[in-house]
Write a protein that binds this DNA or RNA. Sequence first.
RNA 1: GCCCGUGUGGCGGAAUUGGUAGACGCGUCAGACUCAAAAUCUGGUUCUCGCAAGGGAGUGAAGGUUCGAUUCCUUUCGCGGGCACCA
Length: 1102
Amino acid sequence: MEYQFREIERKWQDWWVKNETYKVSNHSSKPKYYVLDMFPYPSGAGLHVGHPLGYIASDIYARYKRLKGFNVLHPMGYDAFGLPAEQYAIEHGIHPAISTTQNIQNFRKQLDKIGFSFDWSREVNTSDPSYYKWTQWIFLQLFKSFFNRQTQKADSIDFLISEFEKDGNLYHPFPDSNFKLPSSDNRFTAEEWKNFSEKQQQEILMEYRLSYCGYGEVNWCEALGTVLANDEVINGVSERGGFPVVKKKLRQWYLRITEYADRLLEGLDTVDFSDAMKEMQTNWIGKSYGAEINFAIDDSDKKLKVFTTRPDTIFGVDFMVLAPEHELVEEITTHKHKKEVEEYIAWVKSRSERERMAEKTISGAFTGAYAINPFDKREVPVYISEYVLAGYGTGAIMAVPCGDERDFRFAKHFNIPITNILGDKFNGEEANPTKDAELVNSNFLTGMLMKDAMVEILNDIEGIGYGKAKVNYKMRDAAFSRQRYWGEPFPIVWKDGIAYPLKEEELPLQLPDVEHYKPGPEGEGPLANIKDWVEVDGITIVDLTPGPSPKERGASPSTPGYFTSTPEQWKILSVFAKENRRNKTEAEDKIWQVLRNRQINNDKFRRQHPIAGYIPDFVCLEKKLIIEIDGGYHNAAEQKRFDTARSEWLNEYQYKLLRFTNDEVLQHIDAVRDRILNELLSMGKDDVVGSPSPKEKESEGEVFLRETNTMPGYAGSSWYFLRYMDPHNNETFCDKNASDYWNQVDVYVGGTEHAVGHLLYSRMWTKFLYDLGFINFDEPYKKLLNQGMIQGSSRFVYRDKNNTNTFVSFNKINNYDVDAIRVDVNIVDGVELDIEAFKKSKPEYANAEFILDEGKYICGVETEKMSKSKFNTVDPSDLVDKYGADTFRMYEMFLGPVEQSKPWDTKGIEGVHRFLRKFWRLFYKESATAPSSLEMAMGEVIVTNDNATDAELKILHRAIKKIEEDTERFSYNTAVSAFMVCTNELTDIKCHKKSILEPVVIMLSSYAPHIAEELYHALGNEGSVLDATYPAFDAKLLVESSKQYPISINGKLRTTMNISLDAHENEIKKMVLQNEVVQKWLDGKEPKKIIFIKNKMVNVVV
RNA sequence: GCCCGUGUGGCGGAAUUGGUAGACGCGUCAGACUCAAAAUCUGGUUCUCGCAAGGGAGUGAAGGUUCGAUUCCUUUCGCGGGCACCA
């Protein structure tokens, strides 16, 4: 019987669905394993062969791990918000939700054909309100948090407010050191804080929030009325339409990712990413140590602040360069240079950041101003130039032409004299960025080594107050808003310039329908066009006004809830308390789920909240009720004494204490709950000045304006790996039990193009959620596997310029003047054009004529990105229809290493298909006529139950070793070839034994699941091959007694010799010297040396 | 421009730790089966000199370390990816 892949694949795909073979439970006694693919954007163009590469790789691994006894989570879903759907909506008027749904269906159909083991019951879609509800919720948590530099962790804004009330911002300076209050200082006292207006307070808090609103420059295209991405801007005009583009400041949301810079760096040590990937992230974060130095400006009271990593070169400063956008430019430019400077700025405005950085030719303008070197009072000219970017450092540099290449070229261009501080290390021809020179011409640093001078000058700068040592990061805060429609709306309303968060109960804030998708006024997003949606009144918002302090509310030390700890005690204990909160036990977590959010009797409980010198597990301050959970050690006599003493002490303060054991909580939570409830009910009405936080207020009659920006593409993808763990939860984004079980993603598969964007953002979100105690790990991805791109191989035909109906074969184009035209790869066989198909492809080609080469039309070939517009895409579905999913899967893997980019060539797929057929013939007898049904074919199985020979076992175990090792290290191309070798060898010795074939089938099932399932059942097995056990490798079966040693003379292979493995070294050397070939090369001379490496080779040096 | 990756037969690639360069597959050539074709099977296939035996060269290029380098080091060239609003 022949290998009928179409019937087989359909049959098993149906069977798997019917039997829910891929459904994964969150409860299992097996160890867990989480294999994740990077979130796909469901593009309208559908899948091409490049897309499934990573999915196949991860699918093989997921199936392999399952065979190895793991409970494997391998989900798939869609990052469904994004620009293409919106662009499509603008052009065709189709709602993005509709086109996205269609694209997803199409995507799914294509994916289903390939036989993936995804658990589709966990599918997520970022554009679904039940998903983005939680994206908005996390955004609100970011909004309500700041980064506490003292603990290096996120903390609540409420806590920050309480700190401000105590000490002003003494211990919590502004994250942006350049931020200045109107008082032109960046410090305030507790007293000042209390006297600020609500608006002032909110503006200050905004400077701390982890998601905040600020102003940023965008590429603004007036003609299109919209904001453009950098790569949509080419030479200062829009890619679409060629309209002018300028920089424009717009209100934008940001994530304060810079606060996490150090932790993002440190975290890299704990994850298994490639060194290249870590390096890219490290460079992106760009931590550098240096100094901020203030230069005075002649005839001005303003200081020019620069950041430099080389303060040791301070005496080599020959000029200063400001970014054209620098705030001082206008002020310091002299009348004489005004026109020139303005013209230059206007030109730079049209330039994208990319162009500015990549530009080789020097440009700039002199402002006419001079800066004064604080150390030697030397005056140097101040220029502006596009090579200094406003966002980096302070937007101004001190230029040292003898040490920096760009500064050097700039100095040459503007004829600025160059000071040599490097002595003979500077040749006047090019800059030398050395750090090892001995300084000359450097005032009090002369004669010092640069690295010593660095330390010296840093001390001086700080001592004299000319500046300070500073750590700088290249990374900037992440822009988090887009002026677009198709993204998550922000759960924010505005009134009088203050941003109010929506209450969490009001989430999700759904995207409203719009009539059209055109931009709103003044560069706002399309949502700004819907007045009815933007203007809201009568909603309940979270009141951001800090309430009166407990003291102001008239509380005294005897009032429950406050003053239970002294500030000193509290400071010490709060750290422990926080730690405790993070590391809660199973029982604590269980009871917390009952107590949290005023679930019992509407009473507020806090956990691990310090009371005087003691941290109870849970406490209701208003009722003075404490709940303790006792672990096993409470049974010890010593501990009992402490416990009793503590209870008595708490009694003195009128605290009541309930104790439960771990077992009570874990096994009888309902009983525990009832007891707590009864206790609370018996206590009557609380007589306490309550402090509900955060407070809520009704805003009857007031009009608020909704935020009209939407979130960027990476919002939903920054946390999706958590949602897969608990995709249908309506109570929380992901239950902690689920995230505790699945934990980190064990293997994350995706392209390097996400190296810095998505990966850094999701790492930050994970750290943030960890800080707040929502999850128990702070790195999302344990191991990263980068898949390479599959490039397209484009085909060209050549049209005669003089005779545009004639096409010339590639080999003859030298004789003609031709235009190269792309032609669809699918009508070209290798390089030979299917002339008939070509004529039919376009009406204008119907009567085309050809100049052939030996009767064939040969196309030109070029490797480039695979894309519809280049006519070089290949649809996986076509290949699956023609060769089957198993062949397709194995061929994609066989192409080359997963990590490497490689061009696609359909030609080779037949070889893999032949291999599967050959493998099939180990089980089934070939018949000349195909049987009419699968059932009839069953009788033709030729597998026997004979015992395996040593030779057969050797073939099998060599394959097991190779395939297991290769699968483990994702070297799938060599594993496929090992399957081929094994099949070839088994065919050669006519082996049809079940004991040999069954293990091979099990191994093959992760690569070619359909044929493996079919053959597994043909061998008489019942359940799915997925639940089989991976064959165990037995090293004993591969032991050899001798080896064919290569014998080299002077490192060049001359012959080989079969030598016993336990032969002694001296014996071997003697044997080798007697060898004919060796004798010939020795030519009677004595060998200088004989190198023998056991199990490797012998080298004779003559 | 900056950062990262990569370069091996006609093609995709293999060589896991410095130790037989080219496994496996495609293509191609020769043969078997066939009226013929397809399919299948067998054998050859880095280039080069040679009837052969056997030499020489060879992993982008140039140098270096080593008994021995595709692998390590230096310089250099080509190609691919990223560079903050494509996802």
